[in-house]
């Protein structure tokens, strides 16, 4: 068993045109997805991140430089993450594919968390 992180890449401006019915449907789909995978023991946690681009610190010749980022535009930020346990990448992929975020055509990045024996 491995631990994985699902990073939800998001462009919130895509959501501006959603209709009332579509938004209600999205909530229902997230609810069904998280209930299903939590009850099966695969989904262990997750947090929503704020929509701003955040800050990034880089060190250069003049020392530390703080700027907006790491995403230069507000498009494509990490909107949130889920923590899951799964057999391997293939199993993690199954859970990610099923996620409403991916089903809405938004990218989901899957990374395995390094565990030290």
């Amino acid at each position: 068993m491995g631990q994985f992180m699902l990073l939800l890449h998001d462009d919130a401006s895509e959501d501006a045109e959603l209709s009332a019915a579509e938004m209600q449907d999205i909530i229902a789909r997230y609810r069904a997805w998280s209930q299903k995978w939590r009850e099966s023991g695969h989904l262990t946690g997750g947090e929503k991140l704020t929509d701003d681009p955040g800050r990034i610190i880089r060190s250069g010749a003049q020392g530390m430089i703080v700027s907006d980022g790491p995403y230069s535009e507000t498009k494509d930020v990490i909107g949130g993450y889920f923590l899951i346990v799964a057999e391997d990448y293939a199993a993690a992929e199954t859970i990610a594919r099923d996620c409403p975020h991916a089903q809405r055509g938004k990218p989901v990045e899957i990374r395995q968390i390094h565990t030290f024996d």
Partner: peptide, 17 residues
Amino acid sequence: VQEALLRACQTWPWKGI
């Protein structure tokens, strides 16, 4: 109205209904 619904859409999947 749109913004209120959108905030629900962005919050409820995480915090619950």
